[in-house]
Structures are given as structure tokens and as C-alpha cells.
Design a protein around this nucleic acid. Sequence first.
DNA 1: TATTTTTACGCAATCGTTGTCGGGAACCTT
DNA 2: AAGGTTCCCGACAACGATTGCGTAAAAATA
Lengths: 340, 340
Amino acid sequence: MKTITIKDIARELNLSTSTVSRALRDSSEIGIETKARVLELAQRLDYNPNPVALSLLSSQSHDIGVIVPEIANPFFAIVIAGIEDVAFAQGYHVVIYQSHEDYEREVLNVKHIANRRKDGLLVSIATATTDYSHFKNLHERGFPIVFFDRICEEIDTHKVLVDDFEGAYLATEHLIKQGCDRIAHVSGPDHLLISRRRLHGYRAALLDYGKPIQDDWVVSSSYDAKNSLEIARKLLTRPDRPDGIFASSDNIAIGCHAAIIEMGLSMPDEIALIGFSDLPISALLNPPLSSVAQPAFEMGRSAAELLINLIKNPGKYTTPISNVLKTSLMARKSSLRKPV
Amino acid sequence: MKTITIKDIARELNLSTSTVSRALRDSSEIGIETKARVLELAQRLDYNPNPVALSLLSSQSHDIGVIVPEIANPFFAIVIAGIEDVAFAQGYHVVIYQSHEDYEREVLNVKHIANRRKDGLLVSIATATTDYSHFKNLHERGFPIVFFDRICEEIDTHKVLVDDFEGAYLATEHLIKQGCDRIAHVSGPDHLLISRRRLHGYRAALLDYGKPIQDDWVVSSSYDAKNSLEIARKLLTRPDRPDGIFASSDNIAIGCHAAIIEMGLSMPDEIALIGFSDLPISALLNPPLSSVAQPAFEMGRSAAELLINLIKNPGKYTTPISNVLKTSLMARKSSLRKPV
DNA sequence: TATTTTTACGCAATCGTTGTCGGGAACCTT
DNA sequence: AAGGTTCCCGACAACGATTGCGTAAAAATA
């Protein structure tokens, strides 16, 4: 893999590397004729500056790292698309990492990002993570970090999230208005902030409408369909079967959906179901799944904007912004008992 | 972001940088005592070698680039997991790029990978790509490339794919055995090799079993559910409605699935449906979707192994390997008319 | 014509690390 | 005691590019 360097051009043209470098950057202290010769040859040889050398010199990479739990999760995939949208326009490249919900992997990814002199980090925390010191260290050393969706409260930096409480409230309220009395909640892992906030929203709605709050109607699942399928099976075979389920994510809802069908229960009449995130697949289920839509693309855009701002104004302390985005209710057949 | 370098250690210990470097690499020409002092301080200061400097020196990065059309596609997400599995074990890091099925983006990604001195490239080609010169250039300069799934026939390098013909044949044969007579095929984009091979498998099965082959029963869709939903709607309203559909991918099948439900047709009795890829979501649909399973994880593993082999034996010309993996039929309710 | 200014370029240091070479000190050999 | 090893370590160059500084020649000025 012989690549063309500035030296090759210098040798060919009997110039010094400094002259070539300056000619390429269109410096005013290089003769017009010389510039033309250099530019022509560079073009012809398809010269590309070596970003590694540049990175070593400037300790900047123009790369930003993104850590998500799983790229297979469409929500994160869309967020990443939003990040790429902004980053690309600003001349940054996005390097994607997966934690696979694993703490060790997350730590490793963070190290890799710091070592490789990435200019900044966007991260949504893994389920397994309870110790945030790998982020804290980086943050304290002045490394730009922005959290999105699964944020870390303990670290004082920009964050982008949705109003999980409100979204959950809306979803639960919707089930109540559809005539549900016994509403269960399949929540996400307890220690994730988003899980807890959605749980609170659910509780608040029940309380406001005078519906019964039963602790054993709240069951916890990991954020994937396989796990929630099993959990929903158990939930639905209980004597006091709920007549409505608010699932903490669409993945969880998809598992519940499958369990409800499997058991031959009618949806929404016997059980109404609503999820959270509004993944593209949800509307294609049978019956189509109701969900609380999150502006995933916008979340990515906002996070990237905040990060790049942080990168471009190093040192300058700005009070951290928490950008809370609005959710919206997508009512579909899985929860719509009365025709609209 | 002050980071510890080898110089800091050298200064502190009154040694030269070369000595420190060798001590850290446990060279035999450094005194045991000196080594111990260096190691202790390095540990205490949390010294990490700068990979950028190393990369500049060795023109190796220990990073391999992966370009896929969309990370949101679970098939590719699983392939990437397989790639990471092997790469990680061999000390390589995987950097993920998305082409978003766009030619320009793909070219840009390739450039980025080459410029950043990635050690190799794993790629599944974008739908929009018809000109392969960006890959050819790289390949001719000796850059290690391995294609997977959506391969490029024109380039003489390792490839990993599944037996698309056989998979399609199996799927079609299955529909025939379930009593379907008028079997349609919703294919992928025509210029993708995998689309064409699956189409051929479909045709061959119809031919072998003496079923009618009608050109207007083959309709082309892009590899996403939204597009195929519309296409399936048209297909199903035609007077000579098919009684079986083989979809070229699960995403396409999901669109067909939604259309069939939407039109109130019974599945599998009025229309049997089978897809290709066996995405995790497929088994959770209602009715569960039959599909041709591809060993996605294994495909990723194999591709990564071949690539790392290529990287570690530079120059040494080895005849390119095409690793063709086997598919397997996952028959579920969407196509199973007779109880098993 | 003598002096200053401008033009146009080269030298060398720098980023962090490694490999080549060279050399002083201590030890061993005869 | 002179010469040969061995052991430890430092100086230097290199990877590719940028940049402050120095300077010869040309141009402008006095």
C-alpha cells in the first residue's frame, strides 16, 4: 500500500516539503507558479494528506465516537443517523461502538475512544453499567461528552433525552381512556433512569385517574423481546389478568404482543397494549402496535450539535444543557377499542 | 486533555525515551531494576501508548473497517457481531460505516478507510452501487478486502456468502409442497447478485415441479418493508391473485405480511408467505413468518477470519476463497397449511 | 548606488514511539 | 595487564505533516 506523501511531491518538483505543504494550503508566501505546479502534481498523483500524521500533530482527529448498547436496535440506529447528519455537515466522522449492554465492553470502548484521540464522545449507557467512573475520569480531564437517552445524572455535562415521564403518563392515560381498569406495566431494568421515569409516569396517571396501583402488576424485563415474551406469558396466566399493558419499550411490547397472540387473547378487547419508541416495525404488526413516539433522529442531531459545540469551545465552561424532547402518542389498533 | 507520554516517564526517571520504550516492551537489554521502576511509574500514571503515533510509525492501525448498507438491518447487525467476535480475539478493533444504500456515501467511506490506514475492509455493497472502481483501486494497491453477502464478482478476493440459489429453491419448493400453485416472488433490486440468485432459485423450483412461470408474478422491491408493503398491495389486488409469495428478504416479507393482514386474507390458507434471512422479529409476527435462515453470525466470523489472514500475510498471493454457507428452512405458520 | 523591503523558499523542531547504532563500564579471559 | 565480552543505556533518525524562523535574491526605495 504505497501511498503518496508530501515528500514524493517535493522530490519530484525539487522543492522542500514545507513549500509543498504551504502550496497545498494556498499560503500567500508561495509563488503563484510554484503553487500551480504543486497543485497539478498533487491532483495527478491523487495525493491525500495523512490524517494520522495530522492527528499526531494536532491531537485532533475530527472523529467523534458514539457508544450505543446495540446498533440492531432501530431506535439507536435512527439516533445514529441523526448524529451522522450533523457531524457530516461539520466535517466530523462518526465512529460507532457497541457496548452490547455489557459493562466491560463499555469501559473498553471508552478507553479506545480516549486513546485514539477522538474529539468527543456521545453515549447511551449500557444496562449493566452501575459504575460511571470511566466516564467521570474522561470528563474531569476535560474530554467532551454528551449523553443521550440513557443518561448519567452524576456527570455534569450536556444531555439529550425525551420526557419519559410525560410519555409514560400519556400512554397510561390513553389505556385508561380506552376503558382499561387493570393496567400492568412491563418495565425496563430498574437501575436505568429511563425505566424509572417511565414507571413514575405510569404510576402518576393511575393515581390521577383513581385506578388501582398494584405492585405485582409491575414486572421488570430487559429491553429485548425474547425476555419480555416469557415475562408476559407469566403475567397473562395470573388469575387477576390485566386488561391493559403499558410496555416500557417497543421491543418489550413486541414480546407481549407475541404472548397475547399465542394465548389466543383478543387485542385490544381483552387486552390493550402500548409500547414506547414507535419503532418502524411496530406499525406493521398485527394488530398494529400503539406506541409513544420519540424523536430519535432529532435526538441524534441535538446531541451531535451540543457535542461539536463543546469540542469547538474547549475549556470554556458553559452550563450544561439538558435538552428534553417531546414525545407523542401513536394510537393504533393494539389499544384502540373505540373507533376514532 | 493532558495525556501521559513516554517522555514524561523518561524525564521523571532520568532516563531516555528509548530506554523507557524498551522497558515497557520488556526488552532483554534493559536492567531488571530499571524495568521495575519504569513499569511502576507507568502503572501509577496510567500510561497508555499513543496508538496514533504507533500507527504513523508502522502504518498499521489494528482497526478494520466494515461497510454495511444499514446497521438498523438486524441481519447486518448480527454479521457485525460475528465480525467483532473474531476481530476482538485477534486484537483488532472494528470500525463500522454505513452506506445508507448510497453510492456517494460508500465511496466516501472507502476513502476514509484507506486514508485512515485501516488494516483492511469488510464490505457488503450498497444497492445504488453499479461502479466498483473505488474498490478496485484499493484492491489493486494491495489493500486487503473481503466481501460478504452482497459481493462484487468482478474483484478477485475472498468472499463469504450464502447459497442464495439453494435457499430460494428450498423456500419455493416448500410453498409448492404446501399446495401452492400460483407462486409470486417479490424480489430485491435487480442488479444485486443476491436478488438475481434468489430469483433463479425460485424459477428453478417452479420449473422442476412443473408449476407455471409467469413474469408478471415477479415484482421488484427495495430491501425494506415500506416499499414492499405498497408493492404487495398491488400484487394482491390483481385478478389472478397468487396463493403463495416468496419474498427475497424478511424485510420485504414483513411488508407483504402487513398487506395480507390489511386485506383480510387468511394466511397461510389463502396466501402462504415465506421470507429470507430469518430475522429475530420474524418468529414473533402473527402468524409467525416462515423464512430461510442464513448463518449471519457465522458469516461475520468467516469474513473476519479471511480478512485477518489477508492482513497478516501481505503480498503473499493466495487464491481467493469463496466461502458459501448453507441456508436452512424455518417453516412456520405463515406457510404451513398442513400440520406437521 | 546603497539601503531597505518584499518575495519566495528552506531548515529544523514538533507530535509519540520504535529501531539502529554506538559506547562506557564492568566482568572475564589468557 | 591487555584485550574481548557482556550488560545497560543514550543519541539519532524515522513515520507525514505543519509552522516559526532564517535568508538569499529580487524589487523598491532613498
